[in-house]
Simulated assay, not measured.
Amino acid sequence: MLPALSYAYDALEPYFDKETMEIHHAKHHQTYINNTNDTLKSLPVFANLPVEDLIQKLDQVPLDKKNIVRNNAGGHANHSFFWKILKQGTVLQGELKNAIERDFGSVDTFKVVFEKAAATHFGSGWVWLVKKDEILAVVSTVNQDSPLMGKAISGTSGYPILGLDIWEHAYYLKYQNRRLDYIKSFWNVVNWDEAASRFIYT
Rank of each mutant, 00 (worst) to 15 (best):
W126E: 09
Y182K: 13
D64L: 12
H28I: 13
V91R: 05
K84Q: 08
G74P: 00
G155N: 02
Y7C: 10
I135S: 11
Q60R: 09
H29Q: 12
S185E: 04
Y159T: 05
K151F: 02
Y32N: 11
Y159I: 13
E194V: 08
A26V: 06
K84I: 05
T31P: 05
Y201K: 15
A152Q: 13
Q93C: 06
R198E: 07
H79C: 03
I23D: 00
E19N: 02
A26P: 01
H29T: 04
V138G: 09
A11T: 15
N35T: 07
P62R: 10
D10Y: 03
V130F: 00
T39H: 11
D108R: 08
K151S: 10
D165H: 11
G125I: 13
W192E: 02
K84F: 08
Q88N: 15
M149D: 00
K184F: 03
D53F: 13
T141S: 14
T156C: 07
K131L: 15
P147V: 02
Q176M: 05
L92S: 06
L173A: 00
F186S: 02
I33Q: 03
M1Q: 02
K111E: 08
S124I: 14
V61R: 10
K111M: 12
G150T: 11
N72P: 04
L2V: 05
A196K: 10
A73W: 07
W126V: 14
D17R: 01
Q56W: 04
Y201A: 07
A4D: 06
L12K: 01
R70Y: 12
E13L: 10
K116S: 08
D64P: 14
A99M: 15
D181M: 07
A4C: 11
F110P: 03
W128I: 15
L129F: 04
N78S: 05
T202Q: 11
G123H: 00
T31A: 02
L148F: 05
A118P: 01
L173E: 03
K18C: 07
Y7T: 14
L136R: 05
N78E: 05
R102A: 11
G150A: 04
D145C: 12
L12V: 10
N37V: 10
E115D: 02
K132P: 13
F82V: 09
L180R: 02
I153W: 01
L180E: 13
A73I: 12
K132M: 12
E52P: 01
D165A: 14
I100R: 04
W167Q: 04
F110D: 14
E134P: 14
K111Q: 12
E115K: 04
Y9N: 14
D17F: 09
K57A: 15
T31H: 10
S140V: 10
Q144K: 03
Q60S: 09
T90G: 09
K27C: 13
L92M: 01
E134H: 08
V69R: 13
K132H: 06
A119N: 13
W167S: 00
